[in-house]
Design a protein around this nucleic acid. Structure first.
Lengths: 208, 208
DNA sequence: AAAAAATACGAGCGATCGCTCGCATTCGAT
DNA sequence: ATCGAATGCGAGCGATCGCTCGTATTTTTT
């Protein structure tokens, strides 16, 4: 009963923070391989090299792990995109813009395979999906912002829908890219960009 | 031990076939709502109005139900497409072709919400995915055939990859369409067609 | 050094779920 | 009418999994 109050950091963190990091690493590894539902908490503990009991010293429940991992990825993503998302990109022509955003995102996902699992795995129960929302929202906001520059004539509702569609296409192709052997990835990445260009093109410079 | 030998039809089928149909209806309903993994066999039995034991009189296990449902959908799909897939469609211009294939498929999925669940639910264990393969293959073959008419210059590998991409895009947008309230569907369907046109356009009439 | 707090362990509880088993009932054929 | 096969039932077995609890060890505080 005295366990897993993680919102307050009482004392002692040298070991603790390290354990938390180990656990999140292990969870990312397992989620990426098996998805959320199929991943056992004991498997996370074993992968992290600790006992089930220790795991719950730092996390309230399985969902809490997904939540924390989601936050970690959100931080990593913003950090990795500070560079790729300089203000000038919004003014670039569409194909260049897509190149400059898709490539880093693919690279990020290849480095962090658990990200896609959290973002897109429909295996996650509803209340955990709440935890993924910040991730989804972060991407959505970014796309929405870009669209409002490139296609200012769109209504907010249309823009929002287009952003959701873009995320959907990106997510699906990303899953195929991650699942494919390395040598099949380049053409798939090209296809992804082509699909995004093909979808967004008419939206951006429409009504000629 | 005497149960669930369904490959042989011994005697008695008036009741049996009816029960099987009931069970498949129930399974489709539950799969569509909760997905495969989250659906309880007892819930399927309850929805079908029978006991768990009776369910296993006709199906070897949970996977077997998915397998049978998959076959049923395959039959329904071919039946529903006998009309939409007349030989002349391959000669139509791309936008018209997409209209003529997407619309019936959307309609089919609105009528049979379980179809999308089986086709795209990553919740299904690997050995059940085998059962979905005929469905996937059926769609893939159709698209591949169309592409070989419309883009004969593509290599088989490229054509195959394009077909997979098309299925991916279609499946994702379809999920969004099914999840959306009715009044948001028409614009999403338009977006789906636009995405397919945008992606396939350069492939079809490329190298001008 | 002693006390308190934090970390660690791992057997196993409780709940869920796929599936079974023994038996009852209904149907079709003779 | 009778009998065997097909269909039906539902309590509950066995396995899995998230999570807990009592306890042991390590680290920080005083």
């Amino acid at each position: 009963m005295t366990q897993a109050r993680r919102q307050d950091d009482r004392k002692r963190q040298a070991r603790g923070e390290q354990r938390i990091s180990q656990i999140l690493d292990a969870a990312a590894d397992r989620f990426a391989t098996l998805g959320f539902a199929a991943t056992t908490t004991n498997a996370i503990a074993t992968t992290a090299g600790i006992s089930p009991g220790s795991l719950y010293q730092f996390f309230a429940d399985k969902d809490d792990i997904a939540r924390a991992l989601s936050e970690r990825y959100l931080g990593l993503l913003q950090e990795a995109h500070g560079e790729a998302f300089t203000p000038d990109i919004a003014t670039l022509p569409l194909p260049t813009l897509i190149d400059r955003t898709v490539d880093p995102l693919i690279a990020f996902n290849l480095t962090h395979p658990g990200f896609q699992a959290l973002l897109a795995d429909p295996t996650t129960p509803p209340h955990v999906s709440e935890a993924k929302k910040p991730l989804h929202t972060a991407m959505l906001t970014r796309i929405d912002t870009i669209l409002s520059t490139h296609a200012p004539h769109l209504t907010p509702a249309t823009r929002h829908r287009a952003a959701e569609v873009v995320i959907g296409i990106f997510t699906t192709l990303l899953r195929m890219i991650l699942a494919a052997p390395a040598h099949e990835r380049p053409p798939l990445i090209t296809d992804l960009k082509q699909a995004l260009n093909g979808y967004l093109g008419p939206l951006v410079d429409n009504r000629g």
